[in-house]
């Protein structure tokens, strides 16, 4: 198999033009997917026998919560790749994913609170999943803040990569210890092999999950474009791009 395509993607310039070309497609397809799945889920699905209409927030809550976790994984892996092979682009990816992941994590906490009010009768309970999501938000916040406190950019990226590795080791330990501590939230309804959700609710949910993943990819590409221009502004091609966007002075740090 020919992997030269992947090697080319680690060049900032190639990556920039690649994402400029394909990202609009990804973005509009994901927007279409989200509007279809949310309309399907919110308007055309039967209400739940127990929770009534309040369960419909599931079509946003579940994709966002699962993304918050998988973005952390992607962020830590990108940081590790950058640390081992010294790929500049992998560090930038790690930086972008930290902010995207933190937003998903916050959204998951907020939508969970909104869902918890009608079903559990309270905005917040000290339950295992909620608590571990709360801790995840702090792990993301540590990543974001540590990067801004170290002066040297290269050192900041490498320190954040190490932080991501420690977080990755600790994540399962934190998760299982918190689960021991308390459990009120229901277990996972969907696994790879079986499901306990009715099919008419499951299909829009899976559709929503797929389109939220897709929009994360798209947001990641947009973020990467900004980051690449910010770090590469001294090169000729980036200067030309910035000049063509009618920016008076190139962006500095």
């Amino acid at each position: 198999m020919n992997f030269s395509f992947l090697h080319k993607l680690s060049s900032p310039r190639y990556f920039y033009y690649f994402s400029i070309t394909y990202n609009p497609w990804i973005f509009y397809i994901s927007l279409l997917g989200i509007s279809i799945s949310l309309t399907w889920g919110l308007a055309f699905t039967a209400p739940d026998y127990l929770q009534g209409n309040s369960y419909r927030i599931i079509f946003m809550h579940v994709p966002v919560a699962s993304l918050a976790l998988s973005t952390y994984m992607a962020m830590a892996i990108a940081g590790t790749m950058g640390y081992i092979w010294r790929i500049k682009l992998a560090f930038l990816a790690s930086k972008s994913l930290a902010i995207i992941g933190f937003s998903w994590c916050t959204l998951a906490l907020i939508s969970g609170a909104i869902w918890g009010k009608p079903t559990w009768g309270t905005w917040w309970v000290w339950d295992a999943r909620l608590t571990s999501m709360f801790i995840l938000a702090f792990l993301y916040l540590g990543q974001i803040i540590l990067r801004y406190t170290i002066q040297n950019t290269e050192t900041a990226h490498r320190a954040c990569a190490l932080l991501g590795i420690v977080g990755l080791v600790n994540l399962p330990i934190i998760k299982y210890s918190v689960e021991w501590w308390n459990t009120l939230h229901q277990g996972a309804s969907i696994t790879l092999t079986s499901t306990s959700i009715a099919p008419e609710m499951l299909h829009p949910l899976l559709c929503a999950i797929a389109s939220f993943y897709l929009i994360t990819v798209s947001l990641f590409f947009y973020y990467m474009q900004c980051e690449i221009l910010k770090t590469e502004y001294q090169t000729t091609w980036a200067y030309k791009v910035l000049a063509s966007k009618n920016t008076m002075t190139p962006i500095s740090h």
Partner: peptide
């Protein structure tokens, strides 16, 4: 504190 706190929870 922010860095160490999540690791200390277990």
């Amino acid at each position: 504190g922010l860095l160490i706190l999540p690791w200390y929870i277990p």
